[in-house]
Design a protein around this nucleic acid. Structure first.
Lengths: 158, 158
DNA sequence: GCTTGACCTCAAGTCGGCTTGAACTCGTAG
DNA sequence: CTACGAGTTCAAGCCGACTTGAGGTCAAGC
C-alpha cells in the first residue's frame, strides 16, 4: 500500500497534524519522504501511533515511550524495568481504586463533613499509603502526619 | 492546641512552604494570622492538606479540589457529579489495568515485536477502548482506526 | 500560467502546578 | 542594639505536551 500523506494519517488517527510533526521532531515517528513539502508516512505509522496513544494512556512520558519504541526497545528494556513500570501502574491503580471508593461513598454518606465519617477517613488513609498517613482523629482535632516525600529536587527556598 | 507556623506545617506534611503559600493564594487553605510576617495555621490545615493530596493523587485539578473543599462542597456536589467522577476514575483504572497487563506480558513474551503477539495486540485494543481501536491485523499489515478524539482538556492521570 | 489552499518552518504561546530569585522585614539570640 | 536567619512579596521561570501565528512554498485544478 502507498504511503499516506499527513492529512490522511491525521484523519485516520484523530491525531492533529501539528502533533504528528511534533512527534516526528521528537523522533517518535518518521516520515518516509515528501510530496512537495508534504510529509508522507508508511501505513505502519498508524500502529505506531496506536502504541504511542497506549503509552500516553498509561501515563508514560513521550521520552519513555520513545525509548520503548526504539528497534527492539521493549525487548531491550529488561524485564526488571518493565516489571517496575507495571508495579508503578499497580500502585497507581490501588490509589485510584481507593479514591474511587471514597467518592462513591461520599456520594451517599450522610456525615456532615467527610472527615467525620470513618469510612471516608479510612479511604484517605489508604489512598495516601506510602505518601502520607492521617493519624487517628479525636472528635475533631486532626493530626495528619505525612511521610516526608522529598522528591522534587529542591529543599528550601529563599 | 496552638496554631502552627508555616515551617511546622511544612515539616509535618512534607509540603514545601512555597506550595503552602501557593495553596493559600489559590484559596485552598487559609492562614489564621501572622506572627510578624510569618503565617500561622490552624492544625486543621493538616487534614485539609491530606485531602488535597488525596485529590491530587486522584488526578483532580486544584480548582476541582477547591470546589469540593468549600464548606459542604462535597455535600453540594450532587451525587451525579460525584458518581461521574468515580466513573471517570473507573475508566482510567480499566485502562491502566490493561496496560499493566500488557507490560507484564511484554516483560516475558518472546515475540520479536510486540505487535506480532496476539496478547499484546489485544491489550492495545482494550486499552484504547473509547479512544481508538486497532482493527484486525493480517500478518503484519497494521491498520489502526482511531475514533476521533477531539477535545483537549482531558484529565491526565499524573 | 495562475490561483488556491493545504502544508511547511520556526518561534512563541498555553496550561497547570509549582519553584526560584531578588529585595525586603521581623522576632530572637547574643 | 545589632546581626542573623527564616520568613515575606512579586514577578518571572520551568516542565511537558502540544497549539498557534506569521510568513513561505508548492502540487493540483481551472
Amino acid at each position: 500500500m502507498k504511503d499516506l500523506d499527513i492529512a490522511e494519517v491525521s484523519r485516520r488517527t484523530g491525531v492533529p497534524s501539528s502533533t504528528l510533526r511534533y512527534y516526528e521532531e521528537k523522533g517518535l515517528i518518521a516520515s518516509t519522504g515528501r510530496r512537495g513539502l508534504r510529509r508522507l508516512f508508511d501505513p505502519a505509522v498508524l500502529e505506531r501511533l496506536a502504541l504511542i496513544a497506549l503509552g500516553r494512556a498509561g501515563g508514560f512520558a513521550l521520552d519513555e515511550i520513545s525509548a520503548m519504541l526504539m528497534p527492539d526497545g521493549l525487548a531491550k528494556m529488561d524485564r526488571g524495568r518493565l516489571d517496575a513500570k507495571a508495579d508503578e501502574l499497580d500502585r497507581t491503580i490501588q490509589r485510584l481504586t481507593t479514591i474511587r471508593e471514597a467518592l462513591r461513598h461520599a456520594a451517599r454518606c450522610p456525615a456532615a463533613r467527610p472527615m467525620e465519617c470513618p469510612t471516608f477517613r479510612r479511604a484517605v488513609r489508604l489512598a495516601g499509603a506510602g505518601r502520607f498517613e492521617v493519624a487517628p482523629i479525636g472528635s475533631f482535632k486532626a493530626e495528619a502526619v505525612f511521610v516526608t516525600r522529598r522528591k522534587r529536587k529542591t529543599g528550601d527556598i529563599g
